[in-house]
Design a protein around this nucleic acid. Structure first.
Lengths: 191, 191
DNA sequence: GCACACATGTAAGGCGTTACATGATTAA
DNA sequence: TTAATCATGTAACGCCTTACATGTGTGC
């Protein structure tokens, strides 16, 4: 999947691994993230597979900068991936739910502490989302890629909305969960 | 993480790999799933690490059935994992969001078809959840494990609630996304 | 006789994280 | 001179999926 994210950004314009890491951090990290080590090694493999070419940026090079460019084969690969719709639900994983599922043996205080930490983290994530404007990214990308990104911004906004709604849902659930575990404090069922 | 799910169930009672696969399918698959191949190989590794012991069920054996039992070391490992609270957000991945993010070059019809398939799948998942009763599982587990699972059922219910609310959120988002992509049909912006 | 559920595995390979490693530029 | 940011990598290891593989028991 990371492969297609990289192809997607490189279909806009050539970028270095470092650029791509920052693009991912600031726009797709919401629903897909990757460490720089994975990005660099994936780019190398994609180049070996003929999907990309790379060259060191000679223009204004104070630092070594390997810039990747998508090939015809890469463009074709990306488009055929986009053309094949998902027909299954992507299955999600959630560490916290595993821990809650097996929490009957824990003390309510301990569980509450963990839930409240998660609540704060989700609150912070949600607040971070309110400061993101996809049209801002669209203007930036337009200046780099030399074309209009108005339509793209509509889809970027949709994924951002999804992230926001996910965090809002999660916060509501955490509040319910906290309330129920607090209720265990007052009536310890097996005491 | 699979390791701790297996330890969690085996802390209730001894089970075979096949049993554990069914338990996971019917109760944690919502937030964590695994193929039988991964379950079998993980169990073997855990046995090698001294967390489990196994023996073939000799009692009523028509079929070969390797039953795993948690050891003291396994119990200790599980408890120390539970005692170390999460301090980060588990990062989620969503294939559909990646596809939506890069959908500006696709035809609205194609995108709509994909979103509608996903809508149906999420609707089915949500309907499936309404037929699950954690207390039913609690009674089943009580008869196998020989203790009460009333408190456990409260936490199982919480994870089920989370799954339900996630699906409801996703359906709302899909409806919004479908509406916005439908709007692109009437006013094709770059035509 | 056939299909389906029960039951357990091996092997290959890609995905993803963590630790380790290096070195330049910029601003306080 | 010290810290932060820029910039790129290797190696080890575990996680996870997919394909391949085998055999029994039960019900129609």
């Amino acid at each position: 999947m990371l492969k297609y994210i990289l192809l997607g950004f490189l279909s806009y314009a050539p970028f270095s691994g470092y650029d791509l890491k920052r693009l991912i951090d600031s726009s797709t990290s919401n629903f897909w993230n990757a460490h720089h080590t994975q990005i660099y090694s994936t780019l190398r493999r994609m180049e070996a597979d003929g999907l990309l070419t790379s060259e060191f940026d000679e223009g204004e090079n104070r630092l070594e900068k390997r810039v990747y460019r998508i090939t015809g084969a890469g463009q074709a690969d990306f488009e055929s991936w986009l053309a094949a719709p998902l027909t299954q639900l992507p299955q999600s994983k959630d560490d916290l739910m595993v821990r809650v599922f097996f929490s009957a043996g824990r003390s309510p205080e301990e569980i509450l502490a963990e839930l409240r930490v998660q609540r704060r983290l989700h609150q912070q994530t949600l607040e971070g989302y309110t400061q993101i404007d996809p049209r801002h990214y669209a203007r930036q990308m337009a200046s780099v890629a030399g074309r209009d990104f108005e339509l793209d911004a509509i889809f970027w906004r949709l994924t951002l909305d999804h992230g926001r709604q996910y965090e809002e849902m999660y916060l509501r659930w955490l509040d319910q969960a906290i309330a129920q575990v607090e209720a265990l404090l007052t009536k310890p069922s097996s005491d």
